[in-house]
Amino acid sequence: MFQYEHVTAGHLDMLKEIGNIGAGHAATALSEMLGKTIDMNVPSVRVVPFNQICDAVGGDEEPVTAVFLRIEGDAPGSMYFMMPAAEGSRLIGQLLNDSGIDFLSNEPNAMGRSALNEVGNILAGAYLSSLSDFTALNLKPTPPALAVDMAMAVLSFGLIEISKAGDYAIVIDTEISETGSDNALRTKGHFFLLPDPDSLEAVFHSLGVNENG
């Protein structure tokens, strides 16, 4: 099994490229869906202790919308498309032309939830299929599942497999956002790719990087 202590700068660069390619395709898909230009930040790839894993989305208790998929196949792992809850509400509001959508309200919101699930599914599908092409690995997403809750509560589920091996996770985090002048009103979303510990070796091997980077 690949040890996180052995991660080199070369490995991290390779994982960054994965975030770049995957989220790039997802951003294009979202841009077509919304009819707007979507920007993508340089991915961050970090080996993080579990306790700090929610920092990127505003803290452990920050309410988020999260679409989760398990990745099965040659390199199993977990994938999230996560947004602060208010921004997730706004994104789906735009898509459905319904400004009343609020995922934090106690309304059932079946239409909005189903739309959000499908958006997550399309974006994660775009991410994974480009990743699969790039690495020549067979990666199959499970059907998506949706949760609106505290960031830590939803992310910890994706850490279960990883936690059997240690207290750190490799997180490939790419932020996408609407192009626009008003920063406060830009919809931002995060893709989190959490490879299972055994998968890193498969990914590095497929890209011709050896254990020593």
């Binding site: 960031a151 830590m152 509560a153 910890s156 589920f157």
Partner: peptide
């Protein structure tokens, strides 16, 4: 007082 936050399946 003692606190832990964001319990999901934990």
């Amino acid at each position: 007082t003692i606190r832990t936050s964001g319990l999901g399946s934990c």
